[in-house]
Each structure stands twice: as C-alpha cells, then as structure tokens.
Design a protein around this nucleic acid. Structure first.
Lengths: 185, 185, 185, 185
DNA sequence: TTTT
DNA sequence: TTTT
C-alpha cells in the first residue's frame, strides 16, 4: 500500500491482437494484451522514411481485465497507466528467464478506451465483426471457456498465487504464452 | 521524430550499483544503471509487514549518460523519464533472448538527481567515499579506460549501430551485463 | 534547457471548441484549446449518478500549434503532454490576475490526435462538416486572416515577447480571451 | 470513480513554505503547499545564464495531507502526482475569480518525500531545526490549534462541502491564502 | 464548450 | 500483431 519510489508507465497505442482473458483460482480476471507504439523519422543517411514499432506486453487485473475483455479488440486504441514488473520463470531447459510487463491493477492502474463511442447503449450486437466505429467491440460474453482456471503448467507452486488481495501485485506464474509469430518476447 | 502513440516510463528510485559507462564507436556515451522501487503493505493473512522491490534496468545515452557517470552512485536517488524498449540478443547457446529496458535519450529523456545540492559549489573533494549528503558523488573522471569501445561480442554487425543521430533510438548489441549481487537480471 | 525539478501535465480529453490560432510577431504559431476531462461517480447519499467536468486551458506553440489548427476541431479527442505555467495579467481595473495554462512547447511538449485515421490520405474534402470519423477535421487552410499578428492590446510592452527562441517558454502577454459563456477561467 | 479522460500532473520540486494544514468540518485534513520548479538556459542574445521559476499551488487531502503536515517543511523536495482543478471564488468586490491547483487526493494522488532517510528510525530528535539531511522535518505535532475548522467566509453554503467520501473531489471554499513573500499567487 |  |  505504501510505496518508496515511483514506478509508472503510460502508454497510448493499438492492440496487436484481441485480449486474452484468464481467471485466477480466486476468480479474479487477468487480461493480457499487446500494445504497439511507434516512431517514425527520416533517415539522414538514406533520406528515406523509417519506422520502428515497439510492442508492449500489458497485463490487466480485476475489473479492468473484464472491461478489456469485453470492449477491447485487435486494433483498439487505448490509454494505459500501470507499473513495470519483471517476473521470473523457467524455460523448458530449466533456465531462468525474465519477462517484463506493464501491470495495470488496483487503484494505480488506468485503462481508457480511446477514439470512439464508449461501447455504450446503442444496443446492436456485434455479430462477429472484428472492428467497428471507434474500433472496439461490443460487450462480449466471456466466450468459449469462461472461468477456465489459470493453469500453471510445469511449475507446480500453487500457493504463491493464492495471494490475498492486499498485496500490491497479484502475481501469477506461467511461462509467457505462445504467440504464433515473431513477437519479440 | 514523429511518433504514433505514447511510450513513457517515469521512475523515482535508488541506484543498486554505480553506473556502468561505455562509449559507442561514435563516441557517444551509454550509462547503464539499475533502479529500485518498492512497495510495502501489511499482509492481511499473517498481519506482518511485507515489502517487494522491483528492479529496473535503465540505459541513458549521450549527455545524460555522461552526467549519470559523473554524479550518480550506488544509492543515489534519481528521477527518470524515458521509454520502454525491448531488445533482442542471443545467449551463449544462440537462443533468442529479450531484455526490456527504460531508455533515456534525446529530447524525451529526463534524468534528475534528487535529494541534495546539485553537485554544486561546495568544493570539498569526495575522497573515495561512496555516499554523501544528497547521496551522489562528486564529478568523477571517466576513470579507468575512458572511451573504451563498446564491444559487441558474438554479434559482429557493426554497421547498424553506426546510426545517424536522427534515429529515435541508438541501439547497441550486448548481452545483459553481469551484476555482482541479487539484482534479478 | 536545463531544469531543476519536474513540471509535467498529461491530459486526455475532448476539445470544447475549435482551436484558436494566432501568430506571434516572430511568425510562430500559438494555438489555444480547451480540453474537457470528466469523472463520474455514484453519490452515496442520493444514490444518483453524478458527473464533474474539468476544463483545461492549453496553449500549443510552434509546429504543434499548426498541426492543432489544421487537424483538431471541437470534439476532437487528444493526448497532451505539457507543463503548467501561470501567467500574470491585469484586468480592466488594473488589478493583477493570474491564469494557469498547460503549455505545450518544444521538445517536452506532445500532442497526439486520438481515435481515428490520422487525417491521412483519404483525400475527400471536408465540406464544412464539423466532425467526422475519428473526430478531427481535414487539414484546414489557416483560414480568414492568416499570419495576423498577435495583438497585445492594453499592454504595450512589446520587448518582452521578442524573446529569443532559446527561452524555455515563449511567453506572450494578453488578457485571457473572451469566451462566450461560463467557462470558469 | 469512473473517469472519462486523463487529468494528471506530476511535479518534482521544493516547497516554498511550510505546509498550511486545515481541517474540514468532516475532520478530514487539507494541506496547502507551494512547490517550485525551475528551468535555466543560456540567453542566446545576451549570452548570460537565465532562470525561471514556476510556482505550483498544491492541495493534499486526507492521509497525505497529514503526512505532508508532519514531515514536509519549507525547502523539502517532493514528488507529487495529482490532478488539475480550477475552483471559483469571489474576491472582496464580489467578482468571480478562478484558481487552478494541483489536487492530490484519493487513490490517484501520490506524495513522495525525496532526498533523505524516510523519517525513519535514526532516533536522534530534531531539536527545533527547520531543515536537515534529506530536508524534511521530524514528525510534527499538529501544533497550535489542531482540528481548527475550515472557515468558509463569505460563502455560506455548507451543504455542498459535506460531501460524501465517494465524491471525486472534496471541495472547499476559500480565497487563496496570503503568502508572505514573492510567490506569485 | 467536449465526450459517454 | 496494431496503427497512419
């Protein structure tokens, strides 16, 4: 609750994919999203326009995770305020690996959908579309397998994630998920 | 120069070690520091006070790197404003690895020393002490081997880091360095 | 150029009106916009939903002012990063008054249009519409009287605003503009 | 509780005076402080070094106000995170006036003392000194007239400030206070 | 004055 | 993978 120092990340960018929603044993939701930010500049040497995209791994917890799961979609533009967190995990060979994420949680976390009518009131169901005005989806049913448990696979240390809510960060142990492509983490 | 989105990190914390300064082939300085931020809370289950420290890897470039090298020391408190950047490297076994850092560079980067008279005027030499009022050192000579070259080891692709200054991020290739203590990366 | 301390404001909100563009004697552009942010909550006493809107006075300078004048319109959603600045002026009775603004200028200033295709490429002229997809206008001609001079009225102290560009803030002297309604400043 | 938009201010600077603490009818504490941030640059025309100081009016509420009253002193360096708020009041002649402040309150508000051991543990009493290592005072008794009531003067509209805690901003009515020196408001 |  |  108290903190020594400041650990704050602010992002505005677009989702590279639909959010992935999971539920912790406690029932709390976790949403994982990836957000792109980019910079462009003119290369002084070649004179050509160049662009570099940075991909950010973001984890939202609790109510914000649910909102993300319901309203955000691939391409959605979003404002995120969270904190940096590096978590340790073991790869297949048992070697320590570290993954840094932006954790959006509790009172310090902010998630604001940008750029459109706020998913509000217009009633019309989404019908499978992927993108729409303001570029987020309609409220979505938790879909597929709701409340599926968080499944720590090779690491069997259940206790630690049974964390009481007063912890500053509800941690979770899992290897970084599989991504189907060359996302650099 | 132009950017699409916002990628901003703000940290206030203390250095876990003295800065490590290097120089790129271009002569530009790079300072690597690690900054601790922490949170404490009362564990509702056990009733005891708990604390969690997060370590942040920060890379400063150019003038700010020089200032960091001269004035910051282990324990120094600092305000940092930079951006998140994940860079790819290969470990000993040739496997891809990713490291996320806070890059402080150019016009968007800010580094402010906190907690003391600003390295200014009081004249008295430091005499080897590690920490002092305001907890940063006196201006330090680049020491040891100044202007030592940045040494990309297994990767021999010099050209890319010959980047013109107009690039948003001067990149550099190196495995994460060794730390002599329990900083988890 | 150097700074002691941090002075940063971050806003995401919608414009209450079209930007007002002026030009300083130097030819530099200044755009004044007002941005709304709001909070809503359930009143515990009455049980009803309540909302409070905060209006922010923002001044953009230079290139960002030009971009604002061209692309932003009443209702546009925008991300702003600037600094707080309070300037002193005299009201009709000669009494000192102070107005606080968010100044967006130079390398520390950021303005990002949110929520739509970035004014780019689709070619179709705007045809007098006030709002469109993504809610900003097409590039607009400086309209009316371009390059009209900044006209300090009752205060005739031209020299101070002849400021060299290396000043951290190009100041300008003018009474707060007339607003046609109850904007609270 | 919910918010549309982002309204965030981040300051790092030094207090121009000791905090002024008051108590609202509800018993909640309010601390008013002024924080200086400054920028310096070399005047290109004259070649001389110049400096400009910006003064920020900050109001802290609740627990943070109490901490501010106990530990902060004139000269203390502090990190502040709050939101911009402009409040209306009437001057002696009944004219509407507006004052913009940085409000630090609730879950979004942050106040971090910088630059010293955190009031903790070193035991040695302060002995009336005003400033010390790390530049903040020892815990201070609320002094003088604790729990003195907030005194709305010309405005007698008690009810509105009887606000339930779920309101985003506990407002208070008062003219800006007198400062004994050259702080420009 | 915006927006939802 | 996004977006312009």
């Amino acid at each position: 609750m108290a903190s020594r120092g400041v650990n704050k990340v602010i992002l505005v960018g677009n989702l590279g994919n639909d959010p992935e929603i999971r539920y912790m044993p406690s029932g709390g939701a976790v949403a994982n999203i990836t957000i792109a930010t980019s910079e462009s500049w003119r290369d002084k040497a070649t004179g050509e326009q160049r662009e570099k995209t940075e991909w950010h791994r973001v984890a939202l917890f609790g109510k914000l995770a649910e909102v993300a799961g319901e309203y955000l979609r691939k391409g959605s533009q979003v404002y995120i305020e969270g904190q940096l967190q590096t978590r340790k995990w073991q790869d297949q060979s048992g070697q320590d690996r570290y993954t840094t994420e932006v954790v959006v949680q509790g009172f310090n976390g902010v998630m604001q959908m940008l750029g459109g009518r706020q998913g509000g009131g217009q009633g019309a169901p989404m019908g499978g579309q992927q993108q729409q005005q303001g570029n987020w989806g309609q409220p979505q049913q938790p879909a597929a397998a709701p409340k599926q448990n968080f499944a720590p696979q090779q690491q069997q240390q259940a206790a630690p994630q049974q964390q009481a809510p007063q912890q500053p960060q509800q941690q979770y142990n899992e290897p970084p998920m599989d991504f189907d492509d060359d996302i650099p983490f």
